[in-house]
């Protein structure tokens, strides 16, 4: 995320309020990293994209109600968080997934749990620190969504041992993340 000053942001906000779409697009570019990181804690990757975009549309529509004396970032985060919560709740009838979604939605309402944009760059660093075979495993399972069953067949290991190995890699990644982004941790 590029550095930006409050002054720039205020100027962009007032231009956006006057109807300048490009100014708003600049605000979008400024804030999208952090927002995506925030939502990525709770949503699958493909949903993050939609929800952030919906959040920005909401924000744009409601710019008239934004008090320019206040900070723009927290306002935007609240809007996106609300969007996410309603997204998680929308699928009420698609049980059983929605049972979990609903519980996640409850957790997601806590602003204190906001992530930082640098989590993604910290994660990049941490992924680099993994040994090659572990990185391949993470890439297969989470990058390409290959089911554990298929991975286990490909590597000739039991599903349980693949699961446990993934779990251990996740624990290592979490530890690494805590070191790089000590205030947040995913």
């Amino acid at each position: 995320m590029p550095e930006h000053s409050d002054l720039d942001e205020r100027a962009l906000v007032s231009r956006a309020r006057a109807g300048d779409e490009d100014a708003f697009a600049s605000l979008v570019r400024m804030h999208q990293g952090r927002l995506r990181a925030m939502l990525a804690r709770y949503l699958a990757s493909e949903d993050v994209y939609d929800v952030v975009q919906e959040g920005f549309i909401d924000a744009y529509r409601n710019l008239g109600t934004f008090d320019p004396e206040r900070e723009f970032g927290p306002w935007l985060r609240t809007i996106c968080r609300n969007r996410m919560v309603s997204f998680l709740r929308q699928r009420r009838r698609q049980r059983p997934l929605s049972l979990v979604d609903e519980a996640i939605a409850e957790r997601a309402t806590d602003p204190a749990a906001d992530a930082h944009a640098d989590e993604l760059s910290a994660l990049r660093t941490c992924l680099q620190s993994l040994q090659e075979s572990h990185r391949v495993l993470v890439d297969l399972r989470y990058g390409q969504s290959v089911p554990v069953k298929d991975i286990s067949e490909r590597f000739g290991k039991s599903e349980t041992s693949v699961s446990m190995m993934l779990m251990r890699i996740r624990e290592a990644l979490l530890k690494c993340l805590r070191r790089h982004a000590p205030t947040a941790g995913p």
Binding site: R36, Y42, A44, L127, Q144, L173
Partner: peptide
């Protein structure tokens, strides 16, 4: 959160 972040990273 980690799983989602890794996925997002890709």
């Amino acid at each position: 959160a980690l799983i989602n972040l890794v996925q997002h990273q890709h």
